[in-house]
Write a protein that binds this DNA or RNA. Sequence first.
RNA 1: GUGGGUGUAGCUCAGCCGGUAGAGCACUGGGUUGUGGCCCCAGCGGUCGAGGGUUCAAGUCCCUUCAUCCACCCCA
Length: 415
Amino acid sequence: MEFTTIKGFKDILPEEVVNWQIIESKARSLFTSFGFQEIKTPLMEKNEIFSRSIGEDTDIVSKEMYSLKDSKGQALTLRPEATASVVRAYIQHRLYEKYPVQKLFSIGPMFRHERPQKGRFRQFYQINAELFGDPGPKSDAETIALAIYLFESLGLGNLSLNINSLGCVECRPRFREELKRYLIDKKDLLCTDCRRRSETNPLRIFDCKLETCKQVVSDAPSVTDFLCEPCREHFESLQAHLKSLGIAFILNHRLVRGLDYYTRTTFEIQTDRLGAQNAVAGGGRYDGLVKLLGGPDHPAIGFAVGIERLVSLLLEDGGSERRKPDLFIAALGKKSEDTCFNWVHGLRKTGMWVEMDYGSKGLKAQMKKAGRLGAKRVLIVGDDELSSGKGILRDMETKSQEEVGLDNIVEDLKK
RNA sequence: GUGGGUGUAGCUCAGCCGGUAGAGCACUGGGUUGUGGCCCCAGCGGUCGAGGGUUCAAGUCCCUUCAUCCACCCCA
């Protein structure tokens, strides 16, 4: 084995691609019915777009980005997430001038230099949705509903929706300070990571999975208690909308995000079937980001779905069936092989999946191959049949066969 | 970056206290010279991840290294 994929990157083989296609086509049609339009942005952007929006102190920016300098010394980065690029495009092309509310989605690969693990890769694919221009909370509910419906349309219930509110520029700083104050005399009880976090990004402590830290945090003040009046109303209204849509959710005041740009609503859709990687979708509101990147002060909300994780869930549930050829033509003899070769292509042009074997093997071998492929019908044509004008058409499921005239065979088989 | 598990045929794996490599599936051919997935027989296929060491002898023991998986971290 000389050449193999690089660590954390992988081939998606044909068998698996079938499931990807199902997911993507369901997503496209569902998103369209919600008024979302597809956008494709470059895989590479200028460095600052990500460092500014995601946050310098986040793990993503500080140690996970694939960054390089091109020959002119420009600092470029393979996108670690989609939102920053979409926001950039929204501003650059003044998409807000066309419609007051812009709904965009995209599907494509992201790159993060993390240690690979179950459900975690260095190149991974996301379906991404962004709604610009409406402050919510109906837009929040709509966006969350879209994510939920996507999973439902794929037959995936049994996922839990967690929601939280992180507050806004008004109330979040107040909570941060309060949390810091609470943690000051409890530092000895925290793990080294959390001790560091208590200084740099105290909200992240809620993410820690260590029992000892969980205990400290269990008595900590809750974000939701510190929400300002508008934020509290927004959050309550969102919950009311979700309830009336019949969408179950879990209030999780420990749900914080690893990207700095989130404000107010955050949510995560989780499963217990993927080991430590329990999030299959995550997102939230990012009202300050468009302005931060130099655009107008427009609110926005969005989410990302991890396609690999979705595929794993589908595969666990049995996956999808392999496609099978509509027809296999078993040609016996040189003359019939040449004639059948033309018929095969005549039928393929009409959209039928037709196979034949080019090696002029015996009938048994060809039937065996047709069986393996799962062909629905087999047309048997030897040189004798060719001259008499009658072939044999066998239905592989009922095992019945009949004589068929060969004069107009391509036309006859189209139906 | 830090732990732990695993590397043997194309795939899934067995291989005991060290004695010169095995099964199932897949593939090719045959049993059946013109009728399918089953069955039977045969064949193909391996520097045992790589490098070093111990030994008369290493897939097996020791060291190093690489790959991969899982977990921490973080996230989709």
